[in-house]
Amino acid sequence: MLFGYNLSPILAQSVLGMVNGAFYALLSLGLAIIFGLLNIINFAHGALYMLGAVVSYLLLHFLGIGYWPALVLAPLIVGAFGVLLERTMINRLYKLDHLYGLLLTFGVALILEGIVRNSIGSSGVTYSVPEALRGATRLGFMIMPTYRLWVVVASFVICITTWLILEKTPIGATLRAATENAALVQSFGVNVPRLITLTYGAGVGLAGLAGVMAAPVYSVNPNMGSDVIIVVFAVVVIGGMGSILGSILTGFGLGLLEGLTKSIYPEASGVVVFVLMIVVLLTRPAGLFGKAA
């Protein structure tokens, strides 16, 4: 007991909040990578996350392909769609104002949502938890659904792996350099247009991966992307546009904060992120981890 609160439900809620945080982190990570290199605010990100969930549902129901293969296949399919999108449309916008990229990707998001609404309906479908991850796991201070525990751990591992690739490998160094000065990197003989395409594909693939992991947690429905993406944009603003580590930490941190708020003052749990966003914008406009321009 602390200040009249029983700590253990608070802790439990916070850990459950981390499940949302895991999705925030995966999504804002992809957004940050894309924004860093392409200078485009990818408004289609939520819809592509939704697409990841829908693709894994379709794989299961039409081809009998289950969760584990879908974990690889759906991100590849969504990533390939992203590659196509970048090659045919987004790459025409680099010389124009940010606003055009935002409008285009927003339009793509609406189209994807419309197609999915027409094909599976707006109430959505369920995707069951894979056999191996059913039931609950005792964590000492709480009992946690095993699948949710998996989501938190897997997403953390994926985020850290992505970060390590960016920070510690030659391809990561090339990507960071291209984010700073793409023209010079290209003049060294790097095929920067291809790097950009693959980066967009990878960032979008991360969204697809988040979508597969989300399918058993939330219902698979056309709005699942727009529900989460608003919070994710707040995460990106709070963490600092384009900061990779910032987006990961802020994603998990805000999930935790939401969970905490839910147990202490549930009425505020839906707005706490946005209140924090306002505070951050007023005091540190570049974000918690961003460098002032």
Binding site: A173, A177, L184
Partner: peptide, 25 residues
Amino acid sequence: AICPEERGIFASLNVTENLMLPPVI
């Protein structure tokens, strides 16, 4: 290969990463 007037050293890369950045052609 060019060594530009403004030198073009990358702030987000350390010295070795900067050195190894241009691919061997």
